[in-house]
Computed example of a mutant assay.
Amino acid sequence: MDLTDEEIRDLCPDAVFERGRTYLEEGRIERISRFDDELTAVVAGSRRYDVRVDPSSPESARCSCPYDGPGTCKHVVAVLLRWMANPPTDERDRIDAVLERADPDALRAFLREELASDVGLRDRFLARFDGSTTRSVAEFRAEIDRLFEETNPDYAVVFDPIDFDEYLELAASHREQGRYDSAAAVHRALIESLDDHMELVDGSYDHFTRAFTTALDGYVDCVAASDGEPAADEDATADGDIEDAAAFLEDRAASGTPFLANRFERAAAELRDRAE
């Protein structure tokens, strides 16, 4: 995972690279850690931003900042330069060693406490070990809607990006287990909420558009992969029937955000093509 200055420069415009280097020199990286191949960091800018990046594939880095220019942002650049100059210790071996010697009952009690207080972790835990989601599209949708309401409560617009990774990772976890109906439920909730709030976005357009595209593509893939089989729990999942899912997308094309209409129409057509 060796990186060079030139490889990092290639990820962004020169001005962004220089700002990232300045951030590093100013000590703006408040926390950085490494687990296996992934770095996680908190970088102070106009506010604190969360960065996640794998130095072996830095083009897929994620940052919670509102940057919507070409390439990656200055916060990611700062973290990669920090990695290049002084890589943090990989905590994987230490965690593995602690898990090996931990008392099973104490470990179970710790996990129960964390699951009780962290709904997102609880969802991922259940997706990994128990089966289909226990929450409906409407419940996921209400939770995502609240993120929009809380981001800028004093104005009827959204200036800053919203981190949807928790939901995208939950959907990915369901997909890995072959639970496509549950994954589709999460994707559909994101699609609906983003569609209904997109005209309020007054900045970070690329961020919200990427999230919408990821959710829409994921929904199409999951509905197609389910092969039209009904969900195990109809109230907890999205449409299992391909025709119903295509109709949902077409309805959104007609009634939702105008500049997203073509995307919905293409997604509906793709879903029907896959069904043939």
Rank of each mutant, 00 (worst) to 15 (best):
Gly256Asn: 02
Asp54His: 05
Cys65Asn: 07
Asp195Lys: 08
Arg188Gln: 15
Phe259Lys: 04
Pro66Asp: 08
Phe248Asn: 02
Pro87Ala: 12
Leu200Lys: 13
Thr237Phe: 09
Thr133Asp: 14
Ala246Trp: 11
Leu170Glu: 06
Asp233Trp: 13
Phe164Trp: 06
Ala156Phe: 06
Ala211Leu: 09
Ser33Gly: 14
Val220Phe: 03
Ala85Ser: 12
Cys222Asn: 12
Glu243Cys: 09
Pro87Met: 13
Arg146Pro: 00
Val53Trp: 03
Arg188Ile: 04
Glu113His: 06
Thr209Glu: 08
Phe248Cys: 04
Glu7Tyr: 05
Ala78Asn: 06
Thr151Ile: 09
Glu243Ser: 15
Thr134Cys: 12
Tyr180Cys: 05
Pro87Glu: 10
Thr4Lys: 07
Ser182Pro: 12
Glu26Ala: 10
Pro88Cys: 12
Asp105Val: 10
Pro230Asp: 10
Leu121Asn: 03
Ala78Pro: 08
Arg94Ile: 11
Leu249Trp: 05
Gly240Cys: 01
Leu115Val: 05
Gly131Met: 10
Phe140Pro: 06
Val79Thr: 09
Glu176Cys: 02
Glu166Gln: 13
Leu170Gly: 05
Ala172Asn: 08
Tyr67Asn: 06
Arg47Met: 04
Val42Arg: 14
Ser56Asp: 02
Val223Asn: 01
Leu260Arg: 10
Leu190Cys: 13
Glu149Leu: 15
Ser182Met: 09
Phe125Ala: 14
Leu80Pro: 11
Glu25Met: 14
Arg128Asp: 13
Ala269His: 04
Val137Pro: 02
Phe264Ala: 03
Pro13His: 11
Arg94Gln: 09
Asp221Ala: 14
Ala171Val: 09
Glu30Ser: 04
Asp195Gln: 12
Leu11Lys: 01
Pro230Trp: 05
Thr4Arg: 07
Asp181Ile: 02
Asp235Glu: 11
Ala232Pro: 01
Trp83Leu: 10
Tyr49Trp: 07
Ser60Ile: 07
Leu11Thr: 00
Glu7Ala: 15
Leu99Trp: 06
Gly203Ile: 11
Val43Thr: 00
Arg252Gly: 02
Glu114Thr: 11
Ala184Asn: 05
Leu194Asn: 05
Asp105Asn: 11
His187Cys: 15
Phe248Ser: 06
Ile95Cys: 00
Ala215Gln: 12
Asp273Gln: 08
Asp96Thr: 08
Asp118Lys: 07
Met1Arg: 14
Asp154Met: 03
Phe248Asp: 07
Gly69Met: 04
